[in-house]
Design a binder for these strands. Sequence first.
DNA 1: TCTTTTTATTATCTTTTGTTAACGTTTGTA
DNA 2: TACAAACGTTAACAAAAGATAATAAAAAGA
Lengths: 196, 196
Amino acid sequence: MEANDLNVLRTAIQRFVPLTDQEWELLTPHLRYRSLARGEKWISEGRKEQDMGIVLEGNMRHYYTRDGEEKTTYFYFERHLVSSYISAITGTPSLLTIEALTDSRLLAFSYAHLQTLYDHSPKWERFGRLVAEYLAIGLEDRMAGLLTMSPEERYLQLLEGNKQKIIERVPQHYIANYLGITPVSLSRIRKRLLEK
Amino acid sequence: MEANDLNVLRTAIQRFVPLTDQEWELLTPHLRYRSLARGEKWISEGRKEQDMGIVLEGNMRHYYTRDGEEKTTYFYFERHLVSSYISAITGTPSLLTIEALTDSRLLAFSYAHLQTLYDHSPKWERFGRLVAEYLAIGLEDRMAGLLTMSPEERYLQLLEGNKQKIIERVPQHYIANYLGITPVSLSRIRKRLLEK
DNA sequence: TCTTTTTATTATCTTTTGTTAACGTTTGTA
DNA sequence: TACAAACGTTAACAAAAGATAATAAAAAGA
């Protein structure tokens, strides 16, 4: 296993909790690589998906399926932790699918193993808490935006915020889903904004 | 301090983690009552709000303020844990206000103290993790609803789900905010549904 | 009780969004 | 290179939502 890839994951984890080598080595034997071709699914709706990973290379999206329509609601880029988090922590079938937008490479491990670490190491338990808090903060912010802003305002926020990567690297019709509108509507919003 | 009130809180906490008496008594000395009149604010936007509590009696709402408009996005009833969670965990000023919808009674403690418990007791750290996970699950579910369902579908879900309490006990114009629409629009949706 | 405030509905008008389809462009692949 | 698929824009129409104002009923407070 490539040392640099390991460091990418360790650095991501240590943004939450600094680890001793010993603590880190509780996880490393359980890591494995996963390569995905563009369009390939990593996590599938309806299955109990316990895997968690970090994106080493590539972009991914996750989407819900409603009436046969795919609704993309999140994107993952390099160094992002990716999983069907709720399926992993609850052990219930995943409600969403995660697929590669471009050819991608992941470093993955099972959440079940992480849970055993929770039992054996306070540092890892703390990591689990901080990740959940981080996720809750992000979701709360996103939800507040959906409830208090118009689609146009949300699009402008995407342009200004630290989310340019989404604009640059993701097809626009997926971004429309992410904003809670249709691709046609997003195209109109863009036109309206250009006319100003 | 009333034994029954203490039990209400302990039961709520033990839905996440069972505690020994000794662990429980790490928290009890730091509890205090708080009574609020209808309309009174408990948490105010712009202030660092570290308090967390459980509703013993009454209903509360939390809202964001945008352009002078209040947007209500959550409700609390008896036995619910209530706080400006993100302000508490990050130590940043609260983005939202929490006020009593009816005369209310809370049992409260400071999140700062809970954080010291995280350092001293694995059981309490686990509680912190499980609460954050619980919150993330709820937020993800809510957000998926906002992105994949129409306002009418969201209203119907509120009628059917385990959320009747909201319909029964909260004025309709707050529910409209909660669904991401205006009160006028919710009134029209109700009319449309009745005509079927 | 009486008065004030809060709440819900309705009407009108404007704006936005959804839906469907057509079109041209770009991108990916055989 | 050539063909097919994916992508973004535009048009036309229908449906829904926002804004504002008027009204009536219900609830709260004095």
